[in-house]
């Protein structure tokens, strides 16, 4: 049923609430690492998996983890998507490629951006970006201890 918007009164409203989200010790260390261009992961003492970002516990074995290791800044693309649309409050502006990246020596996928390539033509992007393709972290010059201190992962030439 398509009703005409202008036929009815509409109340415009916006809810905006400030939050203070605590990183806790483990994530404070992880994001501090980004400031010095290091990506930290955690090795579970039971299943031996290397998980990234850092964890204070293993989500499968449910034991505490205190084995922090610096992981590789290179890895391979496992899945990716080129986003061409935008919505309210979108924290990253399109077009951009979001990807699951398996960093070398780790046992889960790291989610980040793939960049450093021309994104203007989707068909061209499709020919350039491939699953299994090697990528490497590119850092921003000014780092704030934020996930976007890594500008993106670019193809290893």
């Amino acid at each position: 049923m398509e009703m005409k918007h202008e036929d009815y009164y509409i109340l415009e409203d916006q809810v905006s609430i400030p939050y203070e989200n605590a990183y806790g010790l483990t994530w404070t260390r992880f994001f501090e690492g980004l400031k010095s261009e290091k990506i930290f992961g955690s090795r579970c003492g039971k299943c031996n998996r290397v998980l990234v970002p850092m964890r204070s516990y293993c989500p499968r074995c449910f034991i505490e983890i205190d084995d922090t290791i610096e992981v590789s800044q290179e890895g391979a693309i496992v899945a990716w998507v080129l986003t061409e649309y935008e919505y309210f409050g979108m924290p990253t502006k399109p077009p951009f490629i979001g990807a699951l990246i398996r960093l070398d020596g780790t046992d889960c996928e790291f989610v980040h951006l793939v960049g450093g390539i021309d994104l203007s033509n989707p068909d061209q992007v499709r020919k350039t970006v491939k699953n299994g393709m090697k990528v490497r972290a590119v850092w921003k010059e000014e780092k704030k201890g934020h996930i976007l201190d890594i500008k993106y992962f670019e193809p290893v030439k």
Partner: peptide, 25 residues
């Protein structure tokens, strides 16, 4: 969460397209 994943997951079309892309390959 606002620390990590929120910056890369472009709503429902983004995550489900990425899932399908990985499956296709």
């Amino acid at each position: 969460e606002p620390f990590y994943q929120r910056f890369f997951i472009s709503g429902a079309p983004g995550v489900f397209s990425m899932q399908s892309q990985g499956w296709t390959v």
